[in-house]
Simulated scan of single mutants.
Amino acid sequence: MSPTETVLAAVTALFVDFDPEAAGKLMKEDYIQHNPAVPTGAAPILGFLPALKESGLSPTVHRVISEGDLVVLHVTYENAQAFGAETQVAFDIFRVEDGKVAEHWDNLQPAVPADQTPSGNSMTDGATEITDRDKTAENKALVEAFVADVLHGKAPEKITDYVSTETYIQHNPMVGNGLDGLGAAMAAMAEAGQAMAYTDTHMVVAEGNFVFTASEGTLGTQHTAFFDLFRVEDGKIVEHWDTISEIPAEMAHGNGKF
């Protein structure tokens, strides 16, 4: 199986079928866990399956992006009280090694309905089709430069070099569409003492017109993880999804968030 096929089979075994035997065959025993609340190793997550099944947990996978041994899933989890809220939107990243899932990172955020967002978009709707696979390297370089210049603050004035001034569809539940919506939200956050700062970007995964980044920084005074997905069209970023979550000081393992 390809890394994508392996990950989708493992996620189905874990969170659809709740089948520890099938899932265990697809996971390395020393599976490295970065979810702050779950101990490392395959055994703990397999041990949670009866409780997850009882809770009625139900995942919907919206997007799958893969590069090399990394596979990114954009997922909604319903009946996800075990994960912290009734409905959670997540990015799950898996690393595959020797045909088995070897490592997992994620970032979850409670879902906000589209009728409660300034853009009118939900956190997961929008384009899903992967196109322009021949432009993967070019699109990845564009987003990496955007992250360095704009998100890390190296040259924020260059934002229009990277983001379309005509179409910028926003799925962050606090931000309106377009560059004006982004600017207004950032100003409001700063005024409220919730300024957003990116300090390190740990992962970039690209496939065609989609580029995913996993970063850390601060939101106000909170140590925060920022997982972002960008869609690129004709050399510009035209759509954005994200999940934002606080990084706790204490975790159920020593692996860190990243």
Rank of each mutant, 00 (worst) to 15 (best):
224 T>K: 09
36 P>F: 01
47 G>I: 09
178 G>R: 02
45 I>W: 01
241 W>F: 13
23 A>H: 07
123 M>T: 02
57 L>R: 02
247 I>A: 10
249 A>R: 08
60 T>G: 05
45 I>T: 14
76 T>Y: 00
80 A>I: 03
181 G>E: 10
87 T>H: 10
187 A>W: 06
17 D>W: 02
160 T>D: 13
223 H>V: 02
218 T>H: 13
51 A>W: 04
150 V>D: 00
34 H>Y: 08
198 Y>E: 01
103 E>Y: 08
180 D>I: 06
94 F>R: 00
227 F>S: 04
97 E>C: 10
4 T>H: 05
204 V>M: 00
110 P>D: 07
50 P>Y: 13
127 A>Q: 12
215 S>M: 07
16 V>P: 05
211 V>I: 13
34 H>K: 15
21 E>F: 04
145 A>T: 13
9 A>L: 06
30 D>N: 12
73 L>N: 07
140 K>W: 14
99 G>T: 03
188 A>L: 01
81 Q>A: 14
6 T>Y: 02
121 N>F: 09
120 G>H: 09
173 P>F: 09
141 A>T: 06
18 F>T: 12
209 N>I: 00
36 P>M: 10
9 A>R: 05
34 H>M: 11
36 P>G: 10
168 Y>M: 08
249 A>V: 01
156 P>E: 10
56 G>Y: 02
241 W>A: 08
67 E>C: 08
131 T>A: 14
42 A>W: 00
4 T>I: 12
246 E>I: 11
211 V>G: 11
221 T>H: 12
142 L>I: 07
83 F>Y: 11
